[in-house]
């Protein structure tokens, strides 16, 4: 996001599958650049004393034994007995013979 033209923003729009009106492009681009230059503040961060292991970000951990068993009858909510079990059949936005209608590829 360093150049002055709006190619970057257009590329981002394609990547994000968003359309932005031609008239709004400049304004959007300015706002996004403002945010990105604010993010660039992170360059100054010195993680003194903080472990430098690249993957040492905050992430919860779970033991493999605590994972879900391979059972088709899910009792997802323990005592609650809710969740997926109670799910009603889902009606799709547009469908044909049970298939979901999508745009042509």
């Amino acid at each position: 996001m360093s150049t002055n033209n709006n190619n970057d923003i257009k590329k981002l729009c394609t990547l994000s599958r968003l359309e932005i009106d031609e008239s709004e492009i400049q304004k959007t681009s300015d706002k996004i650049k403002e945010i990105i230059s604010f993010f660039n503040k992170l360059d100054e961060f010195e993680s003194n004393g903080v472990q430098e292991i690249p993957y040492n970000y905050m992430k919860t951990e779970k033991k493999v034994d605590e994972l879900r068993d391979d059972l088709t009858t899910l009792n997802l909510n323990d005592a609650d007995g809710g969740g997926v079990e109670k799910a009603t059949p889902f009606s799709f936005l547009n469908s044909k013979n049970g298939y979901v209608i999508g745009p042509r590829i």
Partner: peptide, 12 residues
Amino acid sequence: NSKINNYCLIDY
């Protein structure tokens, strides 16, 4: 021929 299809059908 996918080109003459106006839409696709999806099965999840």
